[in-house]
Every structure is written in C-alpha cells, then in structure tokens.
C-alpha cells in the first residue's frame, strides 16, 4: 500500500468503513510512515471541525411541524371523504331504483365523515386540538332499550397569566418542562425558567432536563441555562455525566468547554476516563490539553 492510496482512505478509516484487512494494512502503514501519520492527524482535526457545522432543529420548529401535520392529516381525511361523497352522489342520480340504497350509504358516509372530521378520535390527542374542549371515548357499554352508553373524557383549555416569580406559574412551567410528548413545550418552558435558575427547584429541573431529556435541543437549552453555575459542585457533577454519557457530541463539546475552564483538579479522573472512551477528536484534544495543564497523566494505568 503506497502513500497515495493510504491518503485516499483515511476518512473511510475514521468512519470505520474499511474492511478488517484494509484497516490492518492502513494501520501498519501509518505506524511506519511519518508523512502519512501527519496526514492522519490533519484528517482527525478536519473530522472534529466538521462537527461544528451540525445544527440541531429548534424544538419550537418540531412543535410547529406536529401542528401542521395534524392539520394536513385532517385535510387529507376530508378530501378522501369528499371524493367518496361525490361518487355516491353520481350513483344517487343514476336511477330512481338506486335512491334508497344511495340514501342509506350517504347516511353512513355522513356518520363516518363527522367522526373523522370533527372529533378525530385518534391522531392528534397529543398534538393539540383546535377546539376549546378535546373529547376522547373512554368507555362504551350497552345501555337500556337498545341504546349505548359512551363515557367521554374531556379536557378543557384555559389560559392563566402571571410572572415567572409567581409560585403557581412557576409550578406550571416546571410541569411543562417535563411534558413527555412535546419537546417544543419543554424547550420553551426552560427558556422562560432560565432567568430564575438561581431558585433551587428550577436549577434541579434544569439539571434533570440536561441529564435525561430525550431531545438534544432541550438538553442544550438546559445546559445554556446552567452556564452561570458551572462552578457549582452539583452542576459540575452533572456536566461530568453529560461529558461521559451524552450521545450528542455538540453537548459534550459544550460540557467540556465549561468543565475545563478553571483547570479543576477534581475532574482529573473524569477526563482520564473520557480519554479512554471518547471518539470525538475535538473533545479528546481539549481533555488532553486540560490534563497536561494540570500535570496529570493522560491515561490511567
């Protein structure tokens, strides 16, 4: 394997897309060729730099998309129903003998169309309803005289206004910050709460979101809000967990930038552990530099 063919395969090596045999050959060459190992170093830096260009879709955009989708699905259902209605109307005018059949069919269509377009019992319960009250069929059972009894579960909407300092408002925001279904809502709530992050319950909610929110955009917001508290022991411990466990390299990058700011001795073991498991070159370099600056070993033995 010559230098040119090695150079052309370096990025594939970093992506882990070479066969075992190719990888072996390449590693062998790199261990012997100084020029190519320098190319490898440059390739690693470029890979790390490319992470900078990754943008996370804002959580509010996701919420908007879901609302649009709900509306789109309703329109789709209405168009389909209207198509069927047109077909049946043509049938209806085709001949008088068909009229009783057509009438019965239109009645059935009317019933099902109303179900599809008004209550829309399925899709949309979590996406938000346009009406004031959203109803969901909870229980159906036979009633007396051939009737049926249907139990509906209804959710009413109302608005409350107040300042974030108000305890009730804050509690609602804290609850919304944990809404499992809507990352847009969680992100917006954290945004509103972050001005009050000195309050213990808010700080705890931010730490919780940073550690366990499934949406990286929301976690990023939580991390931003915790930035002023990067010196707190508790926050630093959360940042260390993010650094070691979060799958999103953008978040790990932010976490290490905050953690190594003051050359913290108590983070040496975390950084050493990081050196053993981290794939991102930028984070590895930052960690390596911080360890050297603290005269700590880069590896654990």
């Amino acid at each position: 394997m010559n230098c040119e063919s090695v150079k052309s395969r370096l990025s594939l090596l970093l992506y882990g897309e070479l066969s075992f045999h190719e990888e072996e050959q390449l590693e062998q060459h790199l261990s012997e060729c100084l020029v190519c190992s320098k190319w490898m170093q440059r390739e690693r830096i470029m890979h790390a730099a490319l992470d900078l260009s990754h943008a996370e879709a804002p959580p509010a955009l996701l919420a908007q998309c879901r609302r649009d989708l709900l509306a789109g699905l309703r329109t789709q259902s209405e168009v389909r129903s209207a198509d069927w209605l047109g077909l049946w109307q043509r049938w209806f005018t085709a001949g008088s003998w068909l009229k009783p059949v057509g009438a019965a069919a239109l009645l059935a269509i009317g019933f099902f169309t109303a179900r599809l377009t008004s209550s829309d019992p399925g899709f949309g319960s979590g996406f938000g309803q346009a009406g004031v009250t959203a109803a969901r069929v909870k229980l159906v059972e036979p009633g007396e005289s051939g009737q049926v009894r249907i139990t509906l579960e209804e959710t009413s909407r109302r608005q409350v206004m107040g300042r974030v300092e108000d305890q009730d408002i804050r509690q609602l925001l804290l609850r919304a910050a944990q809404d499992g279904a809507d990352p847009g809502l969680r992100g917006d709530s954290l945004d509103l709460l972050k001005g009050k992050s000195e309050a213990l319950e808010v700080k705890q909610a931010l730490q919780r979101a940073l550690l366990s929110d499934p949406n990286p955009g929301v976690r990023m917001k939580a991390l931003e809000a915790l930035r002023p508290f990067a010196g707190d022991n508790e926050v630093r411990s959360v940042l260390a967990q993010v650094l070691l466990k979060d799958e999103h390299s953008g978040l790990r990058t932010q976490a290490i930038d905050l953690l190594v700011m003051n050359k913290p001795r108590d983070m040496v073991s975390v950084l050493q552990e990081l050196m053993q498991r981290e794939d991102n070159d930028y984070i590895r370099l930052r960690s390596q530099r911080a360890l050297r600056e603290m005269n700590a070993s880069v590896e654990t033995f």
């Binding site: 943008a55 879709a57 955009l61 996701l62 879901r66 399925g122 899709f123 949309g124």
Partner: peptide
C-alpha cells in the same frame, strides 16, 4: 389497520430525527 394512536406513536418515534436530517440537509427551517 387505521389505528390513529399507533400512527401518532410512530410519528413521535421518528419525527425528531427526520426533522434534524431535513434541517441539516436543507438548512432552512
């Protein structure tokens, strides 16, 4: 089979990554 709740769950399982992919490819919200 027409279960809209199931469809909603499917959307929720994938829509964040779908949006992220589209956003990063197209670079326009």
């Amino acid at each position: 089979g027409g279960d809209a709740d199931a469809f909603e769950q499917l959307v929720y399982s994938y829509d964040q990554s779908v949006l992220r992919l589209a956003f990063n490819l197209i670079r326009s919200q």
